[in-house]
Nucleic acid binder design. Structure first.
Length: 255
DNA sequence: ATGACTCCCAGTGGGAGA
């Protein structure tokens, strides 16, 4: 089974790239973040015509998530149960017996901001919910745009970014908290090239200079860990015309 | 270097992203 996550930064703009990518990478499930579309504008027909099922949950201008799969997802959940939130950030579904959770974690903006307070509250709620989900589903994948660079080796300039948003001890403790639930960072199960990033700023020729962060992650449960065959970041779409600032991350798992 | 780019909604600029 192949699963992937991609922050498309506006599905309205990126739909042609998404369809091209799916044709080249026929994954079993793909979660999207930052669709930035209200539900009535979601391109269900185009994705259906590509041979995929889709569940979606969006809003105007910001956020928005989707779960695309070859077989229909069931037991679909939108946002974190019990956590009141007017931002569309989470979509989950069962695909081929695997609990797939796609999430667009809050950015947090700055460590002293109200948005950081919201990020911490959201992360607390996520952890509690994922813990419960793991008790009900051994086979679980939590993937998406975490907006957290877990370690210094996930940052092109760890000194400059020290203590900045994505790199604060509080955010990193939350990432570790998810690992402590019994999840494993699939990307770090394998030898990877140094300076592997999943996001590059649009500004300052950051992609060309390979100045980025690894903030898009795929965490798998212990029951899936031994079946994980590979985990890669696909940089190709970042080379497109009008690319998303994020690259897809793909995991292959033998069930 | 308080920047840079892109997207959105707006509406001839500004917020947010990361």
């Amino acid at each position: 089974m192949k699963l992937a996550t991609w922050n498309v930064n506006s599905l309205g703009v990126r739909l042609p790239q998404l369809l091209d990518w799916l044709a080249a990478n026929p994954v079993d499930a793909l979660v999207l973040q930052e669709t930035k579309l209200t539900d009535d504008k979601f391109p269900t027909m185009e994705i259906g015509a590509a041979g995929y099922q889709v569940q979606w949950f969006g809003q105007k201008t910001y956020n928005g998530v989707a779960l695309i799969s070859k077989t229909p997802a069931d037991l679909v959940v939108k946002n974190i149960p019990g956590f009141a939130d007017d931002q569309a950030r989470v979509i989950a579904g069962a695909v081929n017996g695997v609990r797939v959770i796609g999430a667009y974690f809050p950015n947090g903006q700055a460590p002293d901001s109200d948005k950081f307070v919201y990020k911490m509250a959201w992360l607390n709620a996520l952890r509690a919910w994922v813990q419960a989900e793991l008790q009900a589903n051994d086979k679980l994948v939590l993937m998406g745009d975490y907006n957290i660079a877990p370690e210094d080796r996930d940052v092109y300039d760890p000194v400059g970014w020290a203590g900045q948003i994505h790199c604060t001890p509080e955010e990193r403790a939350h990432f570790q908290g998810l690992l402590d639930l019994g999840l494993v960072d699939a990307f770090r199960m394998f030898e990877q090239a140094p300076k592997s990033w999943s996001w590059w700023d649009y500004r300052n020729l950051a992609f060309r200079k390979n100045q980025g962060l690894r903030i898009d992650h795929i965490l798998v449960s212990k029951a899936l860990q031994s079946g994980v065959r590979s985990c890669v970041i696909d940089k190709l779409p970042r080379k497109n015309e009008r690319p998303s600032d994020h690259a897809p991350v793909i995991v292959e798992i033998d069930l």
